[in-house]
Each structure stands twice: as structure tokens, then as C-alpha cells.
Amino acid sequence: MALSEAEIATVKGMLLRGDRQHDIAAYFGVNGGRIAEISTGQRGVGISASPADDLPPAGPYMAGRSALRARDTLIALRDLIEQAIGDIDLYEQTEEPR
């Protein structure tokens, strides 16, 4: 899997932050060799590192970015469910008895 320019910028930022190459590889779900190529300048020449504020949390990563995306999705779903329950409760409170 090839990394996009934005992902290479993130890799460079993570390397500058001091993240371990194998943790970065796990985050992106790529072979560690891809990260080594970026680290040694064989790949991504001319791409600047992402600023620290734009980087993911520091590793180690148990399941990579897919786990972080799944967590974000679950949080969004929880919020939607809570809102739907609130809407149902409000409807039931305002519904006229039959």
C-alpha cells in the first residue's frame, strides 16, 4: 500500500516527535520498510513534516488507524443513539393519550 503525500507528511512528523518506526508502520498498516524509506529520505523528498498538532496520538498502536476510526465511529453512533432516545422521550411526553 502506497502512502499519500499527506500520510508521508504525518510519518515525518511522527518521526520528528520520536515515534518508533514499527509503531508508525503499525498505525498506517504498512511494512516497516516503507517508514524506513521515508526516514532515510529515499521516499517523500520535498514533503514537509506535519506539525505536532496535526499528528495522531503517540503509539504504540494495537490495531492501527482502523481502531482509532472505529472508536470515533462508535462515539458518533453513541451520540446519535442518545439523541434519538431523547427525541423519542420528548415525543412520548408530548403525545396526547388515545
Rank of each mutant, 00 (worst) to 15 (best):
P51F: 05
A84I: 06
P57L: 09
G41H: 12
R71T: 12
R78D: 05
N31M: 12
A58I: 15
E95W: 09
D19A: 08
G46E: 07
L3F: 10
E37L: 02
V30S: 05
R98V: 04
A67G: 01
L15V: 03
E37F: 02
D53I: 06
A2Q: 07
P51H: 07
P60F: 08
I85S: 01
I75H: 14
S48P: 01
G86M: 05
D54F: 02
G32L: 06
E96S: 13
F28A: 10
L90A: 08
L68P: 00
P56A: 13
G29Q: 14
P97L: 11
M1P: 04
Y91F: 08
L55P: 08
A2R: 07
F28L: 13
L3H: 06
R78M: 02
E82S: 01
R69E: 12
I8V: 12
L55M: 06
A63N: 15
M1N: 00
N31C: 12
E5R: 03
D54I: 08
H22T: 07
A84C: 09
G18Q: 10
A9Y: 09
R69P: 10
T10N: 04
E82R: 03
S50E: 11
D23H: 11
A6L: 09
I35C: 04
G29V: 11
Q21W: 09
E7K: 00
G18L: 02
M62V: 11
M1T: 04
R65M: 13
Y27C: 13
G59S: 08
R69A: 15
I47L: 04
A6P: 01
G64M: 11
D72S: 14
L55A: 10
G41C: 09
E37A: 02
R98N: 08
L3N: 05
A70W: 00
P56C: 13
I38T: 12
D79K: 15
R78L: 04
P60R: 00
D23W: 11
D19T: 04
Q83E: 14
D72Q: 08
T40R: 00
S4C: 05
D53N: 09
M1A: 08
A9C: 07
G46D: 07
D89S: 12
P97I: 09
G18M: 05
I8L: 11
Y91T: 03
T40F: 02
G59Q: 12
T73G: 15
G46V: 00
E7L: 04
A63K: 15
R69S: 14
Q42D: 12
G44E: 10
I24P: 01
E92G: 03
A49V: 03
A84G: 08
D89W: 08
Q21C: 07
D89F: 11
A52S: 07
R71M: 15
D19V: 02
E37N: 05
L15M: 03
D79C: 12
I81V: 01
A67K: 07
L80E: 12
R17T: 00
G44F: 09
L55K: 02
A25H: 09
E96C: 10
P56G: 11
L16F: 02
M1I: 08
L80H: 09
R69V: 15
I88V: 15
L74C: 13
I47G: 03
D54L: 09
L80W: 03
R78A: 07
A63D: 14
A49G: 06
Q42H: 10
A52N: 10
I88W: 03
Q83Y: 14
D53V: 07
Y61D: 15
A67Y: 03
D53K: 06
G29C: 15
